[in-house]
């Protein structure tokens, strides 16, 4: 792939859909591997969830959508839909039904998990799926395809920016210690990294504030053009891959990877509009 190929919105959306399909497939396969959490004795059993959602229990939708074996069937369908999207991202006969299945099961899982589990990954998956599916109404339109790619690129960049604004409101981030706290966290972190940062408070402060700083200026990726946009994409790549390796955030990484082609496209396009 060359940078110039990303000037074509159809090439760009082809890669977004392909990477998105991969992310959906992998995340859902792992969830299927954890299927016992939906069983009667699991932490997401219907007996637990139905107490919080009495309306759905009363509506009679439970057996078809939420009962233990049926729900795993829906997850398998989403995983398969992700695989189909990966292999046929530009064929509307397969891509549109796949995206519809992904969105449906995404909504079912969101209801089933009460919106608590895997939320950042699922939120971005929802945005990308929704935007790609909207294109179904004008599949061959250059204008609509451009709009969808721009929408995905802009929102990926804004995700970092808004995340930085949330961090600035948080006293633990402002204290400069939050990077240590993240790696010291018992469920996600790693003891070796926690010790490393605990012994180096200066480095911890630099990394905490530089994370906020880069996220704050991240929307600049939308106008700097290439090759400067690769500095931001490279930071995003390192940030996500490190978090994948250190914290096990696989879904988070794969989901955001699908937005990189969109950010490259938007950066080149907006740069030309503004500075030509």
């Amino acid at each position: 792939m060359t940078a110039a190929q990303f000037d074509d919105p159809f090439t760009c959306i082809h890669w977004i859909a392909r990477l998105h399909g991969l992310a959906v497939c992998v995340v859902t396969l792992e969830l299927l591997g954890a299927h016992r959490i939906f069983s009667r004795s699991g932490p997401q059993s219907w007996e637990i969830v139905s107490q919080c959602l009495p309306g759905i229990k009363a509506s009679g939708l439970y057996p078809l959508f939420f009962s233990y074996p049926a729900f795993c069937g829906w997850l398998a369908a989403r995983s398969a839909a992700g695989a189909v999207l990966f292999f046929t991202p530009s064929d509307p006969r397969f891509a549109i039904p796949s995206l519809a299945v992904i969105l449906l099961v995404h909504t079912l899982y969101d209801i089933r998990s009460l919106g608590f589990v895997g939320s950042v990954t699922l939120q971005m998956l929802g945005v990308i799926t929704g935007a790609l599916l909207l294109r179904a109404f004008a599949w061959d339109s250059d204008l609509a395809t451009r709009a969808v790619v721009i929408f995905i690129g802009v929102n990926a960049a804004l995700a970092y920016f808004f995340s930085a604004l949330w961090k600035l409101q948080d006293k633990y981030w402002r204290s400069g210690e939050q990077i240590f706290n993240v790696y010291n966290n018992g469920s996600l972190g790693r003891a070796s990294l926690a010790r490393f940062f605990h012994e180096r408070p200066g480095l911890t402060r630099v990394l905490t504030w530089s994370t906020i700083g880069v996220e704050l200026i991240f929307p600049l990726v939308l106008i700097v053009g290439s090759p400067a946009c690769y500095v931001f994409i490279g930071w995003s790549y390192c940030f996500h891959v490190f978090n994948w390796a250190a914290l096990g955030l696989r879904g988070f990484t794969l989901t955001f990877a699908a937005t990189w082609p969109a950010m490259i496209y938007v950066s080149r396009l907006f740069h030309e509009w503004i500075f030509r």
Binding site: V120, Q123, V127, Y160, W166, W173, Q178, S187
Partner: peptide, 12 residues
């Protein structure tokens, strides 16, 4: 979506 990643007191 909202993006409040790793906010607050990160305890277990």
């Amino acid at each position: 979506p909202a993006w409040p990643v790793f906010r607050g007191r990160l305890t277990t």
